[in-house]
Amino acid sequence: MTSPKTDTPLQILISAPDDAVAQFQPAIAKALDAAGVQAHVAPDLPPEEVDYIVFSPNGLISDFTPFTRARAALSLWAGVDKVLHNPTLTLPLARMVDPGQREGMIEYVTAHVLRHHIGMDRYITASQGWQQVAPPLARDRKVTVLGLGELGGACANALAALKFDTHGWSRRPRTLPGITAHSGDAGLCDALSGADIVVCLLPTTPQTENVLNAATLALLAPGAVVINPGRGSLIDDSALIAALDSGALGHATLDTFRIEPLPEDHPFRAHPKVTVSPHVASLVRVETSAAVIADNIRRGEAGAPFVHLVNRQAGY
């Protein structure tokens, strides 16, 4: 596939909070230049002159109809649930699939799985004297990853490489070497039954709302750990707190929430069995994501299909 050759620079709108614009505007311009695409990247272009929209789906653009010349909307976020049902967004919509973001998610997930597997909190948060406790080997610990897409599949592969008894669940059947894959409603029960650690990496859809609830949490092994770097809507908050309070669950490490920033008075904040991180598990990396944006624009100008297009029916 050859790079496009244009005499007139493309007009690329970047619509995001000021701090994101300050980082992404020069990075995208540099990546486009490296890809051989002449372009002007700016946050304040006339809508009718915009060729591509690069945006963060947090409400800066609510009406896409003025962008009559635009060829695609390219999200800076992996999740697009905030704009998926916007009736004015009829352009091809691509989500962010960033290799740097994927690596960051693998590091976050493996770090917290190993933290709970080894039982590091007993040494970090409490002084218990000289107690030598040997955890099970990874091969004897069942870890289930809910969601086997771009991020979930990568994390499941990393955990399997560490020799965990790795299970995964997805709505549709998938095959990953070294991972016991489940699908459908019955498969969800099999994936969760007896799991020692559960990692939530599903997208937000009507089908995944509260996938971890009182009934499904009861399937886990006693004292199990839940790690959620996916979406806040995946967990029934009240059911999670009840399971933690009863001792059925041992801990929850949560990075995403229904309301963000997480309110200071939220029960998760002060709960002794909850670790809160501020949605940092898989932050977009500027340089690598700028290259993804530039490549999609290059593809569009060369007449090639866009990559990472959102399936609006599936919701991701």
Rank of each mutant, 00 (worst) to 15 (best):
L202W: 08
P267M: 10
V199A: 13
S282D: 14
G232V: 12
V226F: 00
D190N: 12
I293L: 06
L162W: 04
I259S: 11
F164H: 01
T253G: 09
N296Y: 11
P222L: 10
L176W: 07
L212V: 10
T208L: 05
E260V: 06
I297Y: 09
F257Q: 07
V198N: 04
N228T: 12
G184I: 09
G303T: 13
T275C: 08
A161N: 11
S193A: 11
A290P: 13
S277L: 06
V274M: 09
P272W: 06
H167W: 00
V225S: 08
L262R: 13
E301Q: 11
S246F: 03
L162F: 04
P278C: 08
R231E: 08
L202D: 14
A242G: 03
F164T: 01
R298E: 06
H266F: 09
R299Q: 12
N213P: 03
A302S: 15
I197M: 04
A304W: 06
S238I: 05
P229D: 15
A214Q: 09
S193H: 06
P177I: 02
L249Q: 05
A242D: 14
I179S: 11
F164G: 01
L254F: 05
F257M: 10
P173H: 05
R231K: 07
C200N: 14
H271R: 13
N296M: 12
S289T: 13
A243F: 01
R172I: 03
L201H: 08
D255W: 00
D236Q: 02
L162E: 11
H251L: 04
V276N: 14
S233Q: 12
L220M: 14
E287V: 10
P272C: 11
F268R: 03
P278A: 15
S277V: 12
D236L: 01
P261N: 14
T204F: 00
A181G: 12
I197F: 00
A214I: 03
T216P: 01
V276E: 15
L202T: 15
F268G: 08
R171P: 10
P203N: 13
A291E: 15
H167E: 07
L176P: 13
G168R: 08
P305H: 07
D196R: 04
A224T: 13
I297W: 06
P263C: 04
T205P: 03
A186S: 12
A281D: 15
D265G: 03
S170F: 00
F164L: 03
I235Q: 04
H251M: 08
D237E: 15
T253N: 10
E260F: 00
S170I: 08
P229K: 11
A252H: 02
D255I: 09
L212R: 01
V225W: 00
S233R: 10
T275Q: 10
R231M: 04
G184R: 05
A224N: 09
L188F: 02
P305A: 10
S277T: 15
I241C: 01
G178F: 00
V286C: 12
S277G: 09
S238D: 09
I259D: 11
G247R: 04
P267F: 06
G303Y: 07
A242W: 00
D265E: 13
H182L: 02
G232D: 11
D265R: 07
G300V: 15
V198K: 01
P222S: 14
R298G: 12
G178W: 00
A181S: 12
S277P: 03
A270R: 09
P267Q: 08
L249W: 02
A243C: 02
P263H: 07
D185C: 00
N213T: 02
I241D: 01
G223Y: 03
V198D: 08
